[in-house]
Computed example of a mutant assay.
Amino acid sequence: MQTRILTLLAVAMLAGCATRNADTPVDRSARKPGQVEKVATYPDATSTENTVDGYKRDLAQRISQVNSTKVYTGRPQALLRSVIVVRYAVDASGQLVRSEIMRSNRDKENEATALASLRTAAPFPKPAAHLIRHGKLELSETWLFNNDGRFQLRTIAQPQMDQ
């Protein structure tokens, strides 16, 4: 019985990683392909987002804006060159305090690009105080790399092509 409960909990946790928070719908039709909303570019900015998902969207837009020459527009190709997952932490003032590769196909060039694009975009707007735990906010983001080495961030990317 206990094994079954643990299995169900694990399945529920994995399913939660792949779904959006129902409180934060995204209307992609209002944004043109490749268009990025502006995020404050100065370190004293405070995010107006009150949810982790909203703050994560703000950061994804900022990373894309700051690294616009490395970002592709339109839908991600069907078979991506690399998918890199980075876990990172932001402190209460919006400073990047840690980043690490969590998942990769061992494409060192794209891993370096993902980490560098995150560092280049910092500092970030201050997260809402209630999002901070133990002095920081832990987040993860997925970089989707096309064959040409440019990327999109899964949080704000369009649906991937079928073929």
Rank of each mutant, 00 (worst) to 15 (best):
T73V: 07
K70W: 00
E49Q: 15
I63H: 09
S47C: 12
D53C: 06
R57Q: 14
N50F: 04
S68R: 12
E49S: 15
T46Q: 15
K56T: 14
A60M: 01
S68H: 11
I63G: 13
Q77I: 11
G74N: 03
Q65L: 11
D58W: 01
N50V: 09
A60E: 04
N67F: 00
A45I: 09
K70S: 10
Y72I: 04
T48A: 13
Q77P: 07
P76G: 10
V71P: 02
Q77D: 11
V52H: 07
D58I: 02
Y72E: 08
L59R: 02
A45T: 07
T69P: 01
S68N: 12
K56S: 15
T51V: 12
A60W: 00
V71E: 03
V52K: 14
R75S: 13
S64D: 06
D58V: 06
T46C: 12
Q65D: 14
Q65K: 11
T46R: 14
Y72S: 09
G54K: 07
I63N: 11
A45C: 12
Y55T: 01
D53R: 10
T46W: 01
R62C: 08
Q65H: 12
S68A: 13
D58A: 11
T48N: 13
V71N: 03
D53A: 15
N67M: 01
G54F: 03
T73F: 01
D58K: 04
Q61W: 06
A45F: 08
T69I: 03
Q61D: 13
S47M: 09
A60G: 08
K56L: 14
T48V: 08
N50A: 09
I63T: 11
R57G: 10
T51D: 12
V52N: 07
V71D: 03
D58Y: 04
N67P: 06
S68T: 10
Q77A: 10
T73M: 02
Q77F: 01
T48E: 15
Y55C: 00
A60N: 02
S64M: 05
N50M: 09
P76Y: 01
Q65A: 14
D53E: 15
T73H: 03
T46L: 05
Q77W: 00
I63L: 08
V71T: 06
Y55F: 06
I63S: 10
Y55Q: 02
Y72L: 02
K56R: 15
Q61N: 15
I63Y: 08
T46S: 15
Y55W: 02
Q61C: 01
K56A: 14
N50S: 13
Q61A: 08
G74L: 03
R57P: 11
Y72C: 04
T69R: 06
R62H: 09
P76N: 06
R75D: 10
R75K: 10
V52W: 05
T46P: 05
A45L: 07
R57L: 13
P76H: 02
T51K: 11
N67G: 07
A60F: 01
T73W: 00
G74H: 04
Q61E: 14
G74A: 07
T46E: 15
D53V: 10
